[in-house]
């Protein structure tokens, strides 16, 4: 699998174990920011799970934040979350829009 991406791997394992997602993407967007090459600081996750059924967006995000609590407290600085139920994912265009451009605030 992927090379030296311990944080991404840990995030993937945790989300898989907790949410049993039917679709999961973890996109490392750190390169868009003012951080060293290969850094694992800024991520976007796309997670599709039936565990989001009947949960408002805020709760879905809270759930994902909780699962990734350790990572968020230890180096992961930005986490963009796209949390959908399987039927919402079916109905969507399944595209993922990129996060906004960095404006230099990291580490300042």
């Amino acid at each position: 699998m992927s090379g030296n991406t311990p944080v991404e791997n840990a995030m993937r394992e945790k989300l898989k174990a907790s949410l049993n997602p039917s679709h999961l993407e973890i996109i490392n967007e750190s390169y868009m920011h003012n951080v060293p090459k290969g850094a694992e600081t800024h991520f976007k996750v796309v997670v599709v799970s039936d565990q989001f059924d009947n949960k408002p967006l805020l709760q879905r995000h809270r759930l994902v934040n909780k699962i990734l609590d350790h990572e968020l407290k230890n180096g992961v600085h930005a986490l963009s979350i796209n949390a959908k139920t399987p039927s919402q994912w079916q109905d969507s265009d399944r595209s993922v829009s990129p996060s906004p451009e960095c404006r230099g605030g990291f580490g300042k």
């Binding site: 960095c102 404006r103 605030g105 300042k108």
Partner: peptide
């Protein structure tokens, strides 16, 4: 947010 509304220092804050 990060920065001020006139000059956000982060793309997410700016959005």
């Amino acid at each position: 947010m990060k920065g001020i509304p006139e000059e956000p220092r982060c793309g997410f804050s700016n959005a």
